[in-house]
Simulated scan of single mutants.
Amino acid sequence: MRRRRGVLRIVAGVVLGLYPKPWRERYGEEVADLVDSRPVRLRTVADLAGGVADAWVHHRRVPGARPPRVPLPAILAVGAGALGLLWNPGVRDAASLHGVWERAAGAGAIAAELHRTATALFAMAGLLALLSLWQVAVRVRAAGKDAQERAIRGRMVMVAALVAVPAGFVVAAYVGLGFLDVGHPVGPLAEAMLGGFFSPIVMALVLPLPLTAAASPRLADAVRAAGKSLAVAAILNAIAWLAVAALLAIGLRQASPWFAMAVAASALVSTGMAALVARAVLRRAPHDPVGPSSIGRLPA
Rank of each mutant, 00 (worst) to 15 (best):
T117Q: 14
V290I: 15
L130I: 10
A65H: 11
A94G: 09
D54P: 00
A225G: 13
L211G: 04
A226D: 06
A215H: 07
P39F: 03
I239V: 15
A215K: 08
A125Y: 00
T44S: 14
R5D: 14
V157Y: 00
T271F: 00
G28D: 05
R103H: 04
A105V: 03
V281Y: 02
L211V: 05
A226Q: 03
L248C: 06
G64C: 05
E25D: 15
V70T: 15
V223M: 05
V232M: 12
A12D: 02
A278I: 11
A234G: 09
F122Y: 11
A233L: 05
V281L: 05
L72K: 10
W23S: 01
F179N: 06
V202H: 00
A49H: 07
L86C: 04
G64H: 12
H287A: 14
R4I: 13
T119A: 14
L248F: 02
V163G: 04
T119M: 10
A264P: 01
K21G: 10
A300G: 09
M158W: 07
A111L: 14
V202D: 06
S229W: 02
T212F: 04
I75L: 15
R150E: 00
A274M: 04
L8D: 04
V70K: 10
A164V: 11
L180E: 12
S293F: 09
V7R: 15
A190D: 00
A118F: 13
A190R: 12
E191H: 12
P217C: 11
V91A: 12
V78G: 07
L248R: 07
L207A: 08
P210F: 05
P166M: 12
A143S: 15
A104I: 11
G183S: 11
A109I: 09
V62H: 08
W101R: 08
V31C: 02
R92K: 15
P208H: 05
D36M: 08
A275V: 10
A285P: 04
R283A: 13
K21T: 08
